[in-house]
Computed example of a mutant assay.
Amino acid sequence: MRVYLPATTTVLRTLVDEGRLAGPHTAFAVTPVLRQHYAVSDAEADAEELEYAALLTAARASLRLLDNDPLAPRRRAVVAADVPDDAVAALDEPHIDAGAVRVSADIGMRDVASVHLDGADAEEDVRTAVAVVLEADLGSDDAQFVVDQAEGHELAWYATQELGPLLDLL
Rank of each mutant, 00 (worst) to 15 (best):
A90W: 04
T10E: 13
S140N: 08
E135Q: 15
A77Y: 06
V30F: 10
R2L: 14
T160Y: 03
R74G: 07
V133M: 03
D82C: 05
L163Y: 05
D141A: 15
V30H: 03
V130M: 01
L63D: 00
P165N: 03
R60A: 05
R35N: 09
V30A: 09
P24Y: 04
L170P: 01
V130D: 01
V103R: 00
P6Q: 07
D148M: 09
E151T: 05
A81V: 01
P6M: 04
T128R: 13
M109W: 09
A61R: 08
V147C: 00
P24K: 00
E93L: 14
V101E: 00
G119E: 14
D142V: 12
L21T: 04
P84I: 03
D125W: 06
H95E: 14
D82A: 12
V101Q: 01
L117M: 13
T10P: 02
T8L: 13
E162V: 03
T160V: 15
Q36K: 14
A100M: 06
A27C: 00
A113M: 12
A61K: 02
A61H: 08
D111Q: 11
A59Q: 05
V30I: 10
V83H: 01
R127I: 01
A81Y: 00
V126R: 01
V101Y: 06
R127N: 09
P94L: 08
P165I: 01
Y52K: 13
F28E: 03
D92L: 08
V30T: 12
V79L: 11
D69P: 10
P165G: 10
A43I: 10
H37W: 10
L55K: 10
A89D: 12
I107S: 03
V130K: 06
G164W: 06
A129E: 00
D67T: 11
L117F: 08
A122R: 04
V115G: 02
A136H: 06
L71G: 12
D111S: 11
R2D: 13
D85S: 10
A156K: 11
A105C: 14
E124A: 15
R74I: 07
D121V: 07
P94E: 01
R102F: 14
V79D: 08
R2F: 13
G164V: 09
A143T: 07
L167V: 03
E49N: 12
A39E: 15
P24V: 08
E124N: 10
R74M: 11
L163K: 06
D141S: 12
A80Q: 14
F28M: 08
A61E: 11
S140V: 03
Q36I: 08
A27V: 02
T160D: 09
A27Q: 01
V132E: 04
D148F: 06
T9F: 03
E49P: 00
D42R: 13
L166E: 08
V133S: 06
E154D: 15
E124H: 10
Y52R: 12
R127F: 11
P94C: 05
A22V: 15
D111T: 00
G139I: 12
R20Y: 09
L138K: 10
R60P: 00
R35E: 13
D17E: 15
I96C: 07
P24I: 02
V115T: 06
D67R: 15
A22G: 09
G23V: 02
A131I: 05
D142P: 01
F28R: 04
S62W: 02
A77V: 02
V11A: 03
I96K: 12
E154A: 15
